[in-house]
Design a protein around this nucleic acid. Structure first.
Lengths: 337, 337
DNA sequence: GTCCCAAGTGGGAGCGCTCCCAACGTCGAA
DNA sequence: TTCGACGTTGGGAGCGCTCCCACTTGGGAC
């Protein structure tokens, strides 16, 4: 805090006064708009420097009806889902792209009822120029709110149900297909899937991709062993799978956490990976590199996801239109398959 | 986007008109301030509901000179430092506390020059009511900027040099001391330190704590083996240590990443942990639980750090004062020591 | 009955900016 | 010489809210 008393920030009027021009001219000079003579433009610049003037963003926002900020809303029952390194990557990407568009980033973790209420108010009061919404669970209340919002909303990850007008997603089905095709190419003939939550589009699409690839290879798909994207659920699903189908020789896990869980169960059951059972994950998080054995997995470009979401809102805020975007995945082969 | 044309948001004037009261009364009713009769208060509430009125936060901000938002600024050369799960935890804590104080969270990753410039402008233009600043490196330019800011700035982690007026930190020295005391209690007599960056206060304080504890136990402290908090630097520092002092039997690593790196080097060198060398880390990240062997470490309350920073700015924004806060750490004993 | 005080009320002046628009040259073309 | 045309200029009206302040009322205390 400055301790030298209540010396207000200088205003545009004061700048104009010092520069000997009107407020209008000063404003135009500041936003380097046309219709300002070279001389006055320089006079304004001098005055700005001399006074240490910084425009008041709030006043500007009120006049232009633009806040200069985009919000990233992460919806979920539990605040700890945000602790997933996934979101940190999204933020890094989004932050960089927003910076280029000169938009600030507001972060809303809508976990509690109160949090959701605040987000709703943000939507209704136009507290941001645009929103990037990550609400993956089927029936998430914010999905509805988003539809009636008076601002562009870009979904991060396509939600379950009808496709929203704007979203960025990863090619979940394609990635899963590629993973399973790889297992098949290794000669595996009894390939099962450890699913993620089937109330998310990602969970469904990855199972769909698995199923398509298995059928295309002329094999029989296994029924979904559902988990919830956590390591322990992966371990449990693997145990259940082993009990029902002891002869399984290939496993596609819906994400790396579950893949690592499966690895743990397999190790405990005395199965060798990849000799007895080959395992492929999805995400390519850091833990896929450090697991034992290192996990073959489908890499998804998470930073790019954040970046493209941000670019999309930025474009929409500037009045341009955009169409949904699907980002490609790529298989990263390590030791587990 | 609403498709039903340019129907503006209703304003307070319209609410007042419908309720048959003046704008002033409507405003007071909305902010449930005194001096409003019960009848009119209810009339206003009715009008608000009927019109679907939501106050315009920008206009309010302009009038009150309060933005209703606090910024979390993460400074660093490289945007990827933010990918550290540490920050996700800080955010979860800060977000929850800010929600209670009814403040929005702005997130600024100041990695590029442009990013830093934007943060500076945020400071100078009072684009937020308060700032939580994480700028740990010595000589970070934002540290200076923060000093002349016209708003409260709470440091997350005490910076190197003179203590700022407001900060929240973890008891780094105390935690390190406890870790080393534990190693000593195990009968280790040649205890070395793998330091983190010594241009951060955390790095220095942890080494200080190590040194104090070693001296207090009547042993000889080792000179600092400096790393930079990464796993590979921990591995390298451990290798250097082993080369200089093959008889080391206890290691205090400045954080879990470095501790895991040390584990790796020790394994490669054929030393058994904890039999030959006992290792203690610092942070208690997820990887401390999953390393081999699981890492004994000093737990630091990261979410609480975020929460307390947020509470502190919220209090300061509301005109209350606060003093710096040091959060306690606690030793978590696992297999590595 | 008078007086005073407190609660209730609404008018109006901002907050600091943008942007429309009328007014003003100045200059080349008719 | 006259007349648009066009680049400049500044006045003024907002943007939607808060808050100060002057004003009205009703109900004790005397």
């Amino acid at each position: 805090m400055a301790e030298d008393g209540p010396r207000r920030q200088p205003t545009l009027d004061e700048v104009a006064g010092l520069a000997g021009v009107s407020r209008s001219v000063a404003s135009r000079a500041l936003n380097n708009a046309p219709h300002v003579s070279r001389a006055k433009r320089e006079a304004v610049e001098r005055a700005v420097r001399q006074l240490g003037y910084v425009p008041n963003p709030t006043a500007r926002a009120l006049a232009t009806r633009q806040t200069g900020a985009a919000a990233l809303v992460v919806s979920g029952e539990d605040p700890s889902i945000f602790a997933d390194p996934f979101f940190a990557q999204v933020i890094v990407g989004a932050s960089a792209a927003l910076e280029e568009a000169d938009l600030h980033l507001m972060l809303c973790l809508a976990a509690s009822d109160r949090g959701r209420k605040r987000v709703e108010e943000l939507f209704r009061s136009k507290g941001a120029d645009g929103v990037m919404l990550m609400a993956l669970r089927e029936g998430d209340p914010l999905t509805r709110t988003a539809e009636e919002a008076a601002m562009p909303v870009v979904f991060g990850g396509r939600p379950v149900g009808p496709a929203p007008r704007w979203y960025v997603d990863v090619d979940n089905a394609g990635g899963a297909r590629e993973a399973v095709e790889y297992l098949v190419s290794l000669g595996r003939t009894r390939v099962a899937a450890l699913c993620g939550r089937l109330d998310t589009e990602a969970g469904r699409a990855r199972y769909r991709g698995y199923r398509d690839a298995v059928l295309a290879a002329g094999l029989d798909p296994f029924p979904p062993q559902e988990g919830d994207f956590t390591e322990s659920s992966g371990a449990a699903a693997m145990a259940a799978l082993l009990a029902e189908h002891p002869d399984v020789d290939g496993v596609f896990a819906a994400n790396d956490n579950m893949g690592v869980g499966a690895l743990r169960t397999l190790g405990g059951a005395g199965r060798r990976v990849p000799d007895d059972v080959a395992v492929v994950g999805f995400d390519d998080l850091a833990l896929a590199r450090t697991s034992d054995p290192p996990l073959t997995t489908v890499h998804q470009p998470i930073q790019a996801l954040g970046r493209e979401m941000a670019r999309m809102v930025a474009a929409l805020v500037n009045g341009q239109d955009r169409t949904p975007l699907i980002l490609p995945t790529r298989l990263v082969v390590r030791a587990s398959a």
